[in-house]
């Protein structure tokens, strides 16, 4: 079992929060789940209990204009405890609803990454969209200009520059994102992200699975990502659609494209009971040299039971079709049943 300094930071943050006065506070988020997989090809069942990410979230004011937000998590994988620093950012609200943010943050490319982050209690389904495993730059280190709730349509913008997708500071990535919130609970947004990668590698600000071709192709890439998000919550009928389109250009194989679309539709019954359906698909072309050939399709039904705003239980049954990796273009199928308990400590 391996501990690192972030675990100590966790303890320090926690104890400080308990003793703190004023607007410094600490919250916790976590999840635990049980998975049952049935692999059609080999006709075998896999059963597993899993402890999900356990996150600590801290906020604090630093005078009238400045505030701090930090988030880090611990999760247990492969017999080791992994600590991750997700966010550490300082925000300066310089005028009205306009702010400058500096530090490590979640890249606001789409609704999911801007709103849910790592707290599964907010997730409408048990997992992130498939695009998060390949296309979405989850974290960024840099500076961001942010505006929100401007005008009658509640217009918001995020203009950001930071390290490239592979963490290279000499070739900064840029992002432009905007959204409107025309009525309560609805948000419509789009974004454009560009990163020049001088040397492709597996280092990245994404989740596991992305940058798979890093070991095979070490050349340069122009990486562009366009996202459209539509979210409708706080009503009986809930909808979330995340569309992602990636285009990468390499000197050797030219322009290649990939697409992903995640759709969630849920229906709230008395706020506590939410049956839902999901459809998630992802396709990446063979000549794309960041992730290589990817074909994935996931669809299923689920049910969320909200005991109260701080704890909920999700049950989800899904069918998953995929090619295992870029080097293996055969397809596999399996069914998965997930029972996930997610919570917030407030």
């Amino acid at each position: 079992m391996k501990f690192n300094y972030l675990f100590l930071l966790t303890l320090i943050y926690s104890s400080t929060g308990l003793l703190a006065q004023g607007n410094f506070n600490v919250k916790g988020f976590g999840s635990m789940e049980h998975n049952l997989e049935y692999h059609q090809d080999v006709e075998e069942f896999d059963l597993a209990w899993q402890l999900g990410e356990q996150s600590l979230f801290v906020t604090g004011d630093m005078g009238n204009k400045f505030s701090f937000l930090g988030e880090f998590s611990l999760d247990y994988r492969g017999g080791d405890i992994h600590a991750n620093l997700h966010r550490a950012r300082i925000k300066c609200n310089y005028v009205g609803n306009h702010s400058l943010i500096i530090g490590q943050m979640h890249t606001p490319v789409n609704y999911w990454n801007d709103v849910y982050y790592h707290a599964r209690i907010f997730f409408p389904t048990t997992d992130r969209p498939l695009a998060f495993s390949y296309f979405i730059p989850v974290h960024s280190i840099g500076i961001r200009a942010q505006g929100q709730n401007l005008g009658k349509l509640n217009f918001g913008y995020d203009i950001q520059t930071g390290n490239s997708l592979t963490g290279d500071g000499n070739n900064p990535a840029v992002l432009g994102a905007f959204h409107i919130k025309p009525v309560d609970g609805m948000r419509i947004g789009a974004s454009y992200y560009y990163s020049y990668i001088p040397q492709n590698n597996t280092m990245q600000h994404m989740h596991q699975g992305s940058g798979m071709m890093g070991s095979m192709y070490a050349g340069s890439l122009d990486y562009q990502l366009i996202n459209f998000s539509f979210a409708r919550f706080e009503t009986k009928l809930e909808i979330l659609n995340e569309f992602s389109m990636v285009s990468s250009r390499s000197d050797t194989l030219g322009v290649a494209e990939g697409y992903g679309n995640y759709l969630y539709i849920g229906y709230n019954i008395k706020e506590k009971y939410t049956p839902y359906i999901l459809l998630d698909m992802l396709k990446n072309e063979n000549n794309e040299l960041r992730n290589g050939l990817v074909n994935q399709l996931k669809y299923g039904v689920g049910y969320k039971h909200q005991f109260n705003p701080l704890i909920n239980l999700k049950c989800q049954i899904e069918r998953y079709t995929f090619n295992p990796n870029w080097a293996n273009n055969s397809t596999s199928n399996y069914y998965e049943f997930i029972l996930q308990l997610s919570y917030a400590i407030y």
Binding site: F29, D61, K91, M105, Y117, Q148, D184, E234, N308, P309
Partner: peptide, 23 residues
């Protein structure tokens, strides 16, 4: 808020976590 008390708590929990507003 045009919500229940539980709905208001959930609303603020989400908004604060996204970093877009103070509690």
């Amino acid at each position: 808020y045009n919500k229940s008390t539980q709905g208001v708590k959930k609303f603020w929990l989400g908004l604060v976590f996204s970093g877009r507003s103070n509690a």
